[in-house]
Simulated scan of single mutants.
Amino acid sequence: MSMQTSFAPDTETLVTGAPLSRKRRQLRKAGESYGFLAPTLILLFVLMIVPIVMVIGYSFQDEAVMGSSSGLVGLENYIAVLSDAGFWKATGNTFFFTVVSVAAHLILGLAFAMLLNSPLIGAVPRAIFRALYVLPWLFTAAVIAVLWRMLLAPNGIINFLLSTDVEWLASPQLALGTVTFINIWAGYPFFMVSLLAGLQGIPNELNEAATVDGANAPQRFWNVTIPQLRPIIVSLVLLDLIWTSQQFALIWMTTGGGPIDVTEVLSTFTYKLAFAEYDFSLAATSAVLVLLMSMVLAVFYVRHQKARD
């Protein structure tokens, strides 16, 4: 007696009349994946890749305006920008503004994160402190700029409390430090929230084992807490370096790069080349140089993320 085994017909066989090969199935799955990604890839291409290519092209042209140019000039624009004392003054201001801001973000963010993670603070005070500390992160750059311009005005609350009449944003000696302080105030909550999540992910057993071994609080901090937070700290610092070095709105809306050029950074320097002097070729060149600097940091960030994974 012969035994017969029935098999459920394959859906793809019913549709095509023949089973698809493994390679064709893989191609179909890949096509579906790229189909879902296509809208995002098209937007990235149109809104990012095309403008970048256009700006790079403008940097090699003379008097480039809205796609028209009087001809190619090779590297003359790059030589002109790199020979400009204003570019290097803006680079120095950007370096100071970025390094001080990122360092302060890290220190304040870690300090407040450890405070909020401390068992010495009750649940209700911890919730109140979290709301207060994260408040600056909720404001846009425009709100922060207007708020601090009012506070730091000659007749503002800061001068009233200090009994002075200092021009915080108009003084050549104080303006750069003032906008750096404002940026620190606006940016530390990002570090605080991220590091607080990292602290809460550290197993208690590690600190308990260190305590049993005789480690005191500073030793536990340097040998347990910091090594556990190192991947998060490196990622945050690299991201913040990229974001802060390209800060524009806050500086433009508080000082406009002035007084004179004491708060001029690369973003405002490039903007003025384009829309104050109408030299779009040099502005494109400056933008390309900023892009190259940012790409160096981006490469380190990507390599760190790959090593972390």
Results as ranks from 00 to 15, higher is better:
239 L>S: 08
76 E>I: 01
280 F>C: 08
6 S>R: 12
249 A>R: 06
98 T>K: 03
177 G>M: 11
31 G>N: 12
100 V>P: 05
110 L>C: 12
295 M>P: 01
9 P>Q: 14
107 I>L: 15
211 T>C: 13
246 Q>Y: 07
244 T>V: 11
26 Q>H: 03
161 L>R: 00
39 P>M: 05
84 D>K: 03
88 W>K: 14
250 L>W: 05
63 E>I: 00
211 T>M: 12
207 N>G: 09
239 L>V: 14
205 E>C: 06
266 L>D: 10
182 I>R: 04
265 V>F: 08
136 P>D: 04
46 V>H: 00
39 P>D: 00
15 V>S: 04
48 M>P: 00
70 S>M: 06
94 T>Y: 11
50 V>A: 14
21 S>Y: 04
137 W>G: 11
236 L>D: 02
140 T>G: 15
207 N>H: 14
22 R>G: 15
242 I>E: 06
156 G>E: 08
271 Y>D: 08
18 A>V: 10
290 V>C: 15
93 N>P: 01
58 Y>C: 06
46 V>R: 03
2 S>A: 14
110 L>S: 09
305 Q>K: 12
59 S>C: 02
96 F>E: 06
16 T>F: 14
122 G>Y: 12
16 T>L: 13
52 I>G: 00
67 G>F: 06
139 F>I: 08
192 M>C: 07
226 I>V: 15
270 T>E: 09
62 D>K: 15
28 R>M: 07
241 L>C: 11
220 R>L: 02
88 W>G: 11
77 N>I: 04
6 S>A: 11
281 S>G: 12
224 V>A: 08
138 L>P: 00
187 G>W: 07
133 Y>G: 03
266 L>V: 02
84 D>F: 05
13 T>R: 11
19 P>G: 09
106 L>Y: 07
130 R>P: 01
285 T>Y: 02
144 I>H: 03
161 L>N: 04
299 V>P: 10
103 A>S: 12
301 Y>A: 04
5 T>W: 04
194 S>T: 14
208 E>F: 09
130 R>C: 06
